[in-house]
Every structure is written in C-alpha cells, then in structure tokens.
C-alpha cells in the first residue's frame, strides 16, 4: 500500500507540450510512471513520444479522461492559467489534481478553493508533487508525479510530508542513505492557500498499513503544522519526527515561499517547534538530522 498514488495510477499531464511539463513527463516515463495522456488546448491529436512510450495529447481534460481512463492529473501550466487548469480537472471528475505551478495569485486560489468539489483532492500548488517509490533499482517502477528527483527514493515504510521541495529531498535522501525507504512522499506546497494540508496527509499515513513512521516538515507562517500536531497527539500512534524551517527569518518578510511569512506570535518557528514537542513529535533541531531524529524516536 501507499497513499494517493501507486505504480498502477494512470496520470495525465496538463501542459505536456511546454518545456517544463515535457521535461518532467519524460523523467516520469523513465521512472516507470504510467503517463497515459497529455492535455494542451489547441494541440489535441498530437503524440508526445519518449523512450518508445506514445502519449496522446488532447484539447481538454474531459476528453483525455474519457479516452484513457486517467484518474490523476499533474499541472505544469503558467500561473495565469493554472487556476482554470485545476478547475478543469475537478470538472472532469479526477480523483487527484497535483498542481506544480509556482506563482498563482492568491485571489485565484481563493476562488478555486471555494469552487472545489469534494470528490477531487488537490495537492499544491507550488509543490514538488508526489512520489510513491517503486521496487526497482533506484526506486524505479514507482509513481512519480511532479518534479522530484526519482533516484533519491527507496521503497519502504516512512511517509514524508512537506511544504518545501528541496527540504523534502533532503529528508528523503537522508532516509535512503541510512537504509530506510519511503511509502509515499507528498509535497503540499509553499503557498498560503493550498489544497491539501499537513493534517490531511497525516490522516492518510495513519490509515496506511505500509506507513510505519512519518516525517513532517513545515515552516514559518500559518497554523497547518500545529493543527496536524494537535490531531496526531490524540489519534496517531505512529512515531513522527518534525522539522520547522525559518527560526532565523525576520518577522513580516516573505521568505521565498508566498506562505512563509511570520504574521503573529503563534506562527514563528520557535512556537511551532514547542507545540510539536508538546504533542509528542520528535523535533529535529537542524535540517541535517531529520532522518536520524525519526529513527531515534522509532527505536531503530
């Protein structure tokens, strides 16, 4: 088991003919992911080909779903069109829409959130995506949705959830180097309004029999990590390690991610770390010890 996606998941790529989308579609195909369709308005009928895999391109998500049976989409379209792309995926009845696009106006995401249908889960935007590692060499044969480097993964029993791409890679790489693999790694994105929260992912990891331990990576701004930690202290018996980035960030400044801004006394790194610890989560003091902190708590 894994969460959200597995090696059988049929994925369509919105924005497959753009350079960014095309590059990562190729990498996912090489990883062994079932990329079954592409969508680019006005380019329907083209074929996207890589390594002997032929991916048909459609004008609309609904026709791509109808023709290929795709259940998940990944979005690589520019910020001005990304809100529309998400809602097109919702309209087509997809189970999961993963939006990689960075820089979507908050007003657009606010409207998208208000129009979401509960049948579709949104992950992101401004996120690295989702990886369920495969059993092959360098974790090949898994499901790679988004922009994560596939080879750093290893199939195993640790669930990873994070707001930051490169910090996710750090945690995953640390785990893999220490010999511990991952069930699923979910990047939920660095924007102030996103589709899936730390708490949503924690609940899924809690219900997933393959996931035995969890790393949760957060940062300054908002209350998402605190909400997840409070829930976990009551409902999750699996060992969790946490890290919060931004202890040295000045108040009121946006630290790269649009959501990483300290607004009050409760969303500083120090306050979040304190609450995580109170909730029974092992807090990694530095980003260099995310995996080792988990293993210690896990008794490995």
């Amino acid at each position: 088991m894994s969460i959200l996606v597995n090696e059988n998941t049929k994925v369509l790529v919105q924005g497959i003919t753009g350079s960014f989308g095309a590059r990562h579609a190729r990498l996912s195909i090489e990883y062994g992911t079932r990329i079954v369709a592409g969508v680019t308005p006005t380019k329907g009928g083209q074929i996207f080909e890589h390594g002997g895999v032929k991916v048909p391109v459609f004008d609309t998500v609904s026709s791509a779903v109808r023709e290929t049976g795709a259940t998940v989409s990944v979005i690589f379209v520019p910020p001005a069109y990304a809100g529309d792309a998400i809602l097109e995926g919702v309209d087509a009845g997809l189970e999961l829409v993963v939006c990689i696009t960075e820089g979507i106006p908050v007003m657009d995401m606010m409207r998208v959130r208000a129009m979401m249908n509960p049948a579709t889960r949104l992950v992101g935007p401004n996120c690295p995506g989702i990886v369920t590692p495969g059993h092959g060499e360098k974790s090949q044969g898994g499901c790679r949705i988004g922009i994560s480097p596939g080879y750093i993964h290893k199939r195993g029993n640790v669930g990873v959830v994070s707001r930051s791409g490169t910090l996710t890679y750090e945690a995953v790489w640390q785990l893999t180097q220490l010999g511990y693999g991952q069930s699923t790694c979910v990047g939920i994105g660095g924007d102030p309004i996103n589709g899936t929260s730390h708490l949503d992912v924690l609940k899924m990891f809690n219900d997933d029999p393959e996931t035995e331990a969890i790393i949760m990576i957060g940062e300054i701004g908002g209350k998402a990590e605190v909400e997840a930690a409070r829930w976990a202290s009551e409902h999750c018996a699996k060992p969790i390690a946490g890290f919060i980035a931004g202890a040295t960030a000045p108040a009121g400044r946006r630290m790269g991610h649009a959501g990483a801004i300290v607004g009050g006394v409760d969303d500083t790194a120090a306050a979040k770390k304190r609450i995580l610890a109170e909730c029974g989560i092992a807090v990694a003091e530095t980003p260099a010890v995310m995996a080792s902190t988990l293993l210690e708590r896990w008794g490995k």
Partner: peptide
C-alpha cells in the same frame, strides 16, 4: 530552494 535556504540560515 526556499525551504532549504531558510533551513540553511537556521
């Protein structure tokens, strides 16, 4: 990466 940049400062 923004998250790693913040964590590096930390």
């Amino acid at each position: 990466g923004a998250g790693l940049a913040m964590a590096t400062m930390d």
